[in-house]
Design a protein around this nucleic acid. Structure first.
Length: 350
DNA sequence: GATCCGTGGTG
DNA sequence: TCACCAAGGAT
């Protein structure tokens, strides 16, 4: 079984930038970026990141705004914050070298069992198993697991470890992920091309389209949000930096908040700006309406031009506030939905 | 152990 | 349009 998979990998494996490297730092960066994120999305971010932060020392020395700006648009921003912190730990406590043993790697922020296995096998050819989304699906089909994969984690980890090739753990783990990504796909798997088809219980039972069993999910709530683009008499715009933890932590945004039942958008914006920044504004024309979906809810951003009337903005429910020119907005990391607001501001002023 | 955490691709 | 999913981890 190992040989058939490795043979398939030799012929069908993907040529990916990080596979050409044995630098633990570069491989680590790729593993973090690839969490819940597709290869095609990651590649340009990976290339830019290594050009900007070529070593763990360079990353450790960067400031968080630079780091978040380089991550802007990738999502799950805690990954960038943790990567940054871990780089500082590696410089301060591990002599600038990524730890080569599993238990130490697992102490670093942002590194769990799968990521640690991915790094240690790829960088050091250590026989450490992995269990990412691809491997869960491959093994759930191979073994015809009768419950959602997340209800069978112990068995799946055991299988990943038992199957792992002790001679070629690097290639084996990469092969297993490629098999899931390109052959044993979520829908319409290419069983005829699969090296493990003779061993696959799902295929033998013609259940490859029914497995793995899907997790049940709650419906997504939908929130209406009022957002203010506040101008002062100098033609500057007010932005704020979100608190360092939680949703979009550390990123900048245009201030606003949730519209309460029975409240107009304009009332909401005036109230939120008073509560969060302690200033009075006049709500003017509508700038843009943006629908955006997060993992656990959807939002509609109702964005309005506003005019500053009185008061000095205070960081009451955020970390920092700042008046900036439209040209300066590019220097700050914003969430994706806010980039649309910036584009609308530019379009409206030309 | 259930929830939280972004964004883009896909059928 | 929409649900599902992607090289998961932290709390």
């Amino acid at each position: 079984m190992r040989r058939s998979l490795l043979c398939w990998y030799g012929a069908q494996g993907r040529d990916l930038p990080w596979r050409r490297s044995r630098d633990p730092y570069a491989i680590w960066v790729s593993e973090i970026m690839l969490q819940q994120t597709q290869v095609k999305t990651v590649i340009p971010y990976y290339e830019r990141w290594l050009a900007q932060f070529p070593t763990v020392t360079a990353l450790a020395a960067a400031d968080q705004t630079q780091v978040l700006k380089a991550w802007e648009g990738l999502g799950y921003y805690a990954r960038a914050r943790n990567l940054h912190r871990a780089a500082q730990v590696i410089v301060e406590q591990h002599g600038g070298q990524f730890p080569a043993d599993l238990s130490t790697a697992l102490t670093l922020p942002g590194i769990g069992r799968t990521t640690a296995g991915g790094i240690l096998s790829a960088a050091f050819n250590q026989p450490v198993p992995i269990l990412d989304g691809n491997v869960k699906r491959v093994l759930a089909r191979l073994l015809a697991v009768a419950v959602p994969p997340n209800r069978a984690l112990a068995a799946l980890w055991q299988a990943s470890e038992a199957l792992l090739d002790p001679q070629r753990p690097r290639d084996f783990n990469q092969a297993l992920m490629d098999l899931g990504a390109t052959c044993c796909t979520p829908r319409n798997p290419a069983c005829l091309l699969c090296p493990w088809q003779p061993h696959c219980l799902a295929h033998q039972r013609n259940m490859q389209n029914e497995l793995p069993i899907a997790e049940t999910r709650a419906p997504l709530p939908h929130k209406q949000i009022g957002v203010a683009v506040i101008w002062n008499e100098q033609g500057h715009i007010l932005i704020d930096r979100r608190k360092p933890e939680g949703l979009l932590g550390g990123l900048w945004e245009f201030p606003g908040g949730k519209i309460e039942p029975g409240e107009t958008v304009q009332d909401c914006i005036r109230r939120e700006i008073w509560e969060e920044l302690g200033i009075e504004i006049e709500v003017g024309d509508r700038l843009i309406v943006i629908d955006h979906a997060y993992t656990h809810f959807r939002v509609t951003l109702n964005v309005y031009h506003c005019r500053h009337l009185s008061g000095d903005p205070q960081p009451i429910e955020c970390d920092e506030v700042r008046w900036v020119t439209a040209a300066e907005l590019d220097q700050f990391p914003f969430p994706k939905a806010n980039l649309q607001i910036i584009a609308a501001i530019r379009a409206a002023s030309t």
